[in-house]
Design a protein around this nucleic acid. Structure first.
Lengths: 214, 214
DNA sequence: GTCTATAATGCGATAGAC
DNA sequence: GTCTATCGCATTATAGAC
């Protein structure tokens, strides 16, 4: 669908998504959003009610489907009867994220970065609304990983998942700035396939590591 | 030193550090900063020149010493003659960060979180000034890790360091929000010792992992 | 160095015509 | 649904007295 043919609400969501990830929520004004979306300033409050509500709408538009896809992939895996591995469970999360990252029409790459940024910003809207959205996600992945990592204590498993998902969102976000820690001309953190190719073995190694700090 | 006896510039730096990490740069006003610092509003522009310059001052106040400590620890390790391991190199980075995280007088925990947040926010001031500050840091750690991870191609090493340092800053930041991915009542991401205890084996496993994605 | 007062600008939100 | 105009408020920054 061409940009000019999208309705006003969608044009606002697209522009807001792009600008929020680029400059952050607070630094992005409704005036800039409506200007880039080529709609009237008052349209934001007409369609969404407030800037906060717009932010929430930007998130749930893609988060709900992404969430459902992950759970659906888990369903398929668990009902397939095939032997379930750590990599298998991991890929049910990575595949939908990767698809989102690579789909320009869905503004995917933007959104995954926005999600990562939103976590770090610890935004008030997210603290309240996002945990509910994710309760099934958390429960399903906790159980799935505990099945394929049976040797771990509950606390150890929780910590490894905490670190693993943090790493993956960070990597998907593809921040150029982190490249200052390595040769910046070697690592191109923006190509999703390359990111995932290096991310997977690193995460699996961390999750399955037999050693535990004394 | 008691808070009331600190000079104006220091009081401003302390308040700004705390508020920037709590609400972000854009969402923190000079009015709030000067109010919490119990100094006059005009003092910020007198001592620092602008809000941007204040932000930069907040960062370099702790970043420069932290940087030097890491390099100094690397010096000690490399001149000790003892066999150098991945964990040994890693700890030269983790120890100063951990010390900073645990020193309340240095506002340490606040600062490490601010650093992580600043990376993700990809702030314009950081894109320009921070890479210079870190050029020696990057060179030293690149060489040190290539010595203890001799089997890796240059690109593979760069990616692992990219992922490892991203993970560590993310973990040091101790964002509560990431806990929604795991049982939130088990993982207490705010105690630096606990974070490090779980972080170290995970990172080492990822760095030393013999497997490479086909 | 510290303060008051204020300039200059931008913000989110809304009223009301069409 | 869309638009103009504007309200009320907050912001950074500065001028100038002390």
């Amino acid at each position: 669908m061409d940009s000019a043919t999208k309705d006003t609400a969608t044009r606002i969501l697209d522009a807001a998504e792009r600008l929020f990830v680029e400059h952050g929520f607070e630094a992005t004004s409704l005036r800039t959003i409506t200007q880039q979306a080529e709609v009237n300033l008052a349209a934001v409050n007409y369609h969404f009610g407030s800037k906060d509500a717009l932010f929430q709408a930007v998130l749930v538009r893609r988060l709900a489907p992404l969430n459902q896809q992950c759970v659906a992939e888990l369903d398929v895996l668990e009902k397939s009867g095939a032997p379930i591995t750590v990599e298998g469970v991991l890929m049910t999360f990575i595949r939908p994220c990767l698809a989102l990252s690579k789909d320009p029409n869905r503004g995917g790459a933007m959104f995954v970065r926005l999600l990562s940024r939103t976590f770090v910003e610890n935004h008030r809207l997210i603290r309240d609304t996002l945990p509910q959205q994710y309760s099934e996600f958390v429960n399903r992945y906790s159980k799935a990983f505990s099945r394929v990592l049976p040797g771990l204590k509950l606390e150890e498993l929780a910590w490894r998942l905490h670190l693993a998902f943090g790493l993956m969102f960070n990597a998907f976000a593809g921040n150029d700035v982190l490249k200052i820690f390595v040769k910046s001309d070697i690592v191109s953190a923006r190509d999703p396939d390359t990111v995932v190719r290096h991310m997977i073995p690193f995460v699996i190694a961390g999750l399955t590591n037999p050693a535990t700090q004394s």
